[in-house]
Design a protein around this nucleic acid. Sequence first.
DNA 1: AGATGTATGTTATAACATAACAAGGCGACG
DNA 2: CGTCGCCTTGTTATGTTATAACATACATCT
Lengths: 159, 159
Amino acid sequence: MERNPTGFTAHDHNGCVDAALQAAEKACTERKLQLTPTRRRVLEILLESHAAMGAYDLLARLDAEGLGSKPPVAYRALGFLVEQGFAHRIERLNAFVACAHPGATHDPAFMICRSCGKVAEADADATMNETAAQSGFRIEQTVIEAEGLCPRCQPETRK
Amino acid sequence: MERNPTGFTAHDHNGCVDAALQAAEKACTERKLQLTPTRRRVLEILLESHAAMGAYDLLARLDAEGLGSKPPVAYRALGFLVEQGFAHRIERLNAFVACAHPGATHDPAFMICRSCGKVAEADADATMNETAAQSGFRIEQTVIEAEGLCPRCQPETRK
DNA sequence: AGATGTATGTTATAACATAACAAGGCGACG
DNA sequence: CGTCGCCTTGTTATGTTATAACATACATCT
């Protein structure tokens, strides 16, 4: 697994793109899912940069290419990619970014540059602060939110 | 500082409310800010439960009480409370919750029950997993997002 | 009174997201 | 071969969240 957060620093971006597309194709084959033209194209667009992209900006691109102009087109493709782990939703931005660690176990943490909008992906179990320090990212604000079931709402089994 | 996440378990809720309101009043006096009727009322409403509340649900309450009916009324009050640390925004839910640790140093982490909607607030520097285990919360999904400046976007001083 | 700062009221619209229903494509199975 | 079921797409309509922009009010200081 790629451990260093890519995105902020120079790197072989074609490599990123190829790796991500190949990983997605492989995973789809294995899972018997279809990486349809629209889905594939959305992933490619997200992969063009490590910045997060809003669903409507994406939709504008799709529209320009004749792939669809209605919001559900974008949201469906994004939903698929996120479900399958090929992309991630960045809650703070209501936006989406291609997964930078294709195939990795996924408990991602993100560093979002509020100036250039680039997003670097790290692993959540590494302390965010440590990873940030290593990559030179200056954290100003962190969003850490776990969702799940509180004690009262858990099914009785194994309370 | 309150270290255990409140919210999921039985506790002296009147105490919560009083402490939070008093802390807010004190902080406003110190900072020479006004805890106006609308602001105060919004905080009180958020404090009624430890669940997160959307801006429009809140607005409906304000409207019913004659305190205003237009979105900016709610967003302004919420913005003020969040800026001052009296409430927090829960990105995943596009919703707001009263601060459970008034006066504490703030690097909060949240546990959100997807069933009852209650939100418990912990400290981010304690490992979330540990805190969750202690309180019996079953984590299903975590959002960890840091925002700041990447190496390229930092002012030259102290790169 | 006039200047300034903070808060509020209001209109309008931007930005993000999904429900619901219709229709097409395609393989499995009888 | 047909038709059934499943997945995917197309489209309409609407719901939900959030902010820009401008006008007004009100207190304080000079």
